[in-house]
Design a protein around this nucleic acid. Structure first.
Length: 497
RNA sequence: GCCCCAUUCGUCUAGCGGCCCAGGACGUGGCCCUCUCAAGGCCAAAACAGGGGUUCGAGUCCCCUAUGGGGCACCA
């Protein structure tokens, strides 16, 4: 590993095609981690040289995604920096200038082939036949001066091998004879990725280029291009990609969330993760754990702790099936580790989105008992939404919810009736006090705890599944709890007098 | 078709020649705990793709095959 006397600078260079895909974000995350690890900079650059594919508002979406994840950007559009502009369509002159320089140096040439000619060559078999590679310079200059449409192509060596070093895979080699004279500058004056990324990465002083493995086949072209320019070459790292959960095909082909073979929703867009109620900490943890690992058999960790340990060379070169099931577990781990007030803060918008007017003090009381029960933030609605209903409008649940397993209306009625004086007698209404009072009540009335506690749960919460009964009643308060149990008693009396 | 890359439990991974009759995690199954749901604890099943080498010794190095992924655009 050669020592770098230049600062470490990495970049994420997406096309502005709209919502951010998890695959791209993962690559960006690795680049960011590497930059942070070495105290360097992380740059955002927009590669909008294919105008047809540009979607307005993309930059905002990209930045929002990073913001949510906690990935901070040092330089980029809307942020600025010393090496801008950070949008390729604003750097056109630079590419044209360097493309012409390559032509002047004899490393590239103008190609006047029409798209019809190209289509024919493709049909015939081997792609572009380099028919303008040795076109005399004076003719080429003349035709260009006459305004004849043309592209600029790179003169790839015709024989030999191009060798390069990939930080993740080590040495890679390619036969030059296999490679084509790639287009560097399109006839509309826009550069292709090949030219643009090199000019940009050079002028932006990028030290390490990270990109997905699908770029590996064009790596030799890039190697030759760096050589032709005579510029000091950054290190390249071709990152493995995410495959579909079944291991078949690239995940990046999926344009939005989908259901896997077991019917589980598999999110792929950043906004889908957010909407599904995942914590950004968990998502980062999840992504960092694919193709790289923290070490010490530790699965749950914060990015902050990962940074000092991160290394591109330790990245697993193999692509991996998207282990989405692990995210649910990771998310619940993170929810459990969150301080209650923090959890409450994050739950608030979820409840509001579900239509509840949220009392923050109440939420903070509820939060502790939710910690071990939420896989996703969204689970709060089903589990504890009832706390945020208008209490005065509470209606007792149907008999099938009130009546516990192996019980009937009569026995449930008996339990609840008997529970009323117990409730009333409680001066200390803490969950602990309730617990001892009601276990004593259960014992004396010959009932199992489960029967008593369960009946009370249903009466107080209106649900079969809820936070622990006495936590629930403590939060509801004595008066409200009593009122609800009475309502349940009345309901049962009406149903089966 | 040609080229490139990869290949350890179902999945994510540890392993960089002896510490491995292969470790962790998710998931799955069982048991325990238990007022529901969870969480937690314990246990279990589960892998070095196949074949050749190299070596005293190979999951670890080399070759071949197979499989998977990717690339062969005036898209990135």
């Amino acid at each position: 590993m050669p020592k770098h006397d230049h600062p470490i600078r990495t970049r994420y260079a997406p096309s502005p095609t709209g919502p951010q895909h998890i695959g791209g974000i993962r690559s960006a995350l690795f680049a960011w981690l590497f930059a942070r690890r070495h105290g360097g900079q992380f740059i955002l650059r927009i590669e909008d040289t294919d105008q047809k594919r540009s979607v307005p508002g993309s930059v905002e979406q990209i930045m929002a995604a990073f913001d949510w994840l906690g990935v901070d950007i040092d330089e980029g559009p809307r942020i600025g920096g010393d090496y801008g502009p950070y949008v390729q369509s604003q750097r056109l002159e630079m590419y044209q200038q360097w493309a012409n320089w390559l032509v002047a140096q004899g490393h590239a040439y103008r190609c006047f082939a029409t798209s019809e000619e190209l289509a024919e060559m493709r049909k015939a078999g081997r792609g572009y036949d380099r028919r303008y590679r040795d076109f005399p310079a004076e003719h080429s200059d003349e035709q260009a001066a006459q305004g004849m449409p043309h592209v600029i192509r790179f003169k790839m060596p015709l024989a030999g091998r191009t060798r390069g070093c990939d930080m993740i895979r080590g040495e890679v080699a390619f036969d030059n004879a296999q490679l084509q004279d790639a287009v560097l500058l399109k006839s509309d004056g826009f550069p292709t990725y090949h030219l643009a990324h090199i000019v940009d990465d050079h002028t932006m002083r990028i030290s390490h280029i990270t990109r997905a493995v699908e770029w590996l086949p064009s790596f030799p072209l890039h190697l030759q291009l760096w050589h032709a320019f005579g510029w000091e070459m950054p290190q390249y790292a071709h990152l493995p990609v995410l495959l579909n959960p079944n291991g078949k095909g690239k995940l990046s082909k999926r344009k939005q969330q989908f259901a896997d073979s077991r019917g589980k929703t598999v999110p792929v867009l950043m906004q889908e993760f957010q909407a599904a109620g995942y914590l950004p900490e968990a998502v980062v943890n999840f992504l960092t754990n694919i193709g790289w690992n923290f070490g010490d058999d530790q699965e749950v960790f914060a990015v902050k702790a990962a940074i000092p340990r991160f290394d591109l060379q330790a990245v697993n070169p193999a692509n991996s099936a998207y282990p989405i099931a692990k995210l649910d577990w990771l998310n619940s781990q993170w929810v459990q580790r969150l301080p209650a007030d923090d959890l409450a803060r994050r739950l608030k918008p979820v409840l509001e989105a579900a239509g509840y007017a949220v009392d923050e003090a109440l939420l903070r009381e509820v939060a502790p008992s939710l910690k071990v029960r939420l896989k996703s933030l969204n689970d709060v609605v089903g589990m504890a939404g009832f706390f945020f209903e208008n209490w005065s409008e509470f209606t007792p649940p149907a008999a099938e919810i009130l009546i516990q397993r192996k019980m009937d209306a009569a026995s449930t009625l008996a339990i609840l009736r008997g529970a009323l004086p117990v409730l009333e007698s409680l001066e200390d209404f803490s969950a602990e006090a309730q617990y001892s009072a009601f276990s004593a009540y259960a014992a004396s009335s010959g009932q199992k705890n489960g029967a008593v506690f369960g009946s009370l749960r249903a009466a107080a919460s209106g649900q079969k599944v809820s936070p622990p009964t006495f936590d629930t009643m403590q939060i509801l308060g004595k008066a409200e709890s009593l009122r609800r149990v009475k309502l349940a008693v009345a309901a049962l009396e009406n149903a089966a007098p």
